[in-house]
């Protein structure tokens, strides 16, 4: 079922993220249980599930903001171990967008965008600024370049955060509930940017409860509960024909919400 879903982009088989039998504990609490997940180039995967089911922990393991204790995680064939050089390399290749934006408030929008290209990629400042302005254009806020994050609306801040990640030219993007902290009228402007990003072929792993987004762009939807992947299917099947009772219950709650 999963495998016959052809990814949109060309290089169909290139694996970007691979998790094999990953387990994680917070103290005694078993938060991730035997996670197996493969993300290929160009795939858009939506992860959903009840609060506390381990969705954030799962994607944060991919760039080692959280450490897993069993199993293996590969990003583009580089294994995540405690080797700091590997970790920093992987982080520079995988973008992440947070629920709370986490922009740097002491820097202007433009400086937020150029920080990593200049200091991690060693890009000349002029080139980094040119790149940053291109991405601001792409997330539709070129006029805000010289403002500070605190002067922007939530939706604008989140779009800046997306542009900040894109400036590193990542091979995949992780989103952790990017619209959950936003006022309703701003959700669409962020989702529109994400949809456009998906159309451009970006590999995306998105934790979200925006089921409209999942239907529009996802290749696969993953349902998690209590640290386990319960169901993994393409959106059509997932929404119209869920197999597990837990998925059905979750969908009925979230769609009637």
């Amino acid at each position: 079922m999963v495998n016959q879903t052809a990814p949109a982009a060309g290089a169909a088989d290139e694996v970007i993220i691979r998790m094999e039998g990953v387990h994680k504990w917070y103290g005694q609490f078993h938060v991730l249980k035997d996670i197996n997940l493969t993300v290929r180039k160009g795939e858009r995967i939506v992860v959903c599930g009840p609060s506390g089911s381990g969705k954030s922990t799962l994607i944060r393991c991919i760039n080692r903001l959280e450490e897993h204790q069993r199993g293996r995680i590969f990003v583009h064939e580089v294994e995540l171990t405690s080797d700091l050089k590997h970790i920093e390399h992987i982080r520079s290749e995988v973008g992440m967008v947070f629920q709370q934006f986490n922009l740097f408030p002491h820097l202007t929008v433009l400086e937020n965008l150029t920080l990593a290209p200049i200091w991690v990629r060693k890009m000349p400042r002029a080139e980094a600024e040119k790149l940053a302005r291109q991405y601001l254009e792409r997330v539709r806020i070129p006029e805000q370049a010289d403002k500070y994050p605190g002067q922007l609306s939530g939706g604008q801040q989140q779009r800046v955060a997306i542009a900040r990640s894109l400036c590193m030219n990542p091979m995949a993007m992780l989103f952790d509930e990017p619209t959950s902290a936003l006022d309703p009228e701003m959700i669409k402007e962020v989702l529109d940017v994400m949809i456009e990003l998906a159309r451009s072929g970006m590999t995306m792993l998105v934790v979200t409860h925006e089921m409209g987004f999942a239907r529009t762009v996802a290749n696969r939807v993953i349902f998690m509960d209590q640290g386990e992947i319960i169901e993994e299917a393409e959106p059509e099947t997932f929404f119209n024909n869920p197999k597990s009772d837990r998925t059905k219950l979750f969908l009925s709650q979230i769609l009637h919400h």
């Binding site: 920093e88 290749e93 986490n102 740097f104 920080l115 990593a116 590193m168």
Partner: peptide
């Protein structure tokens, strides 16, 4: 987290 996620050491 944001700084680390960008690959800053």
């Amino acid at each position: 987290e944001a700084a680390m996620a960008l690959g800053l050491n």
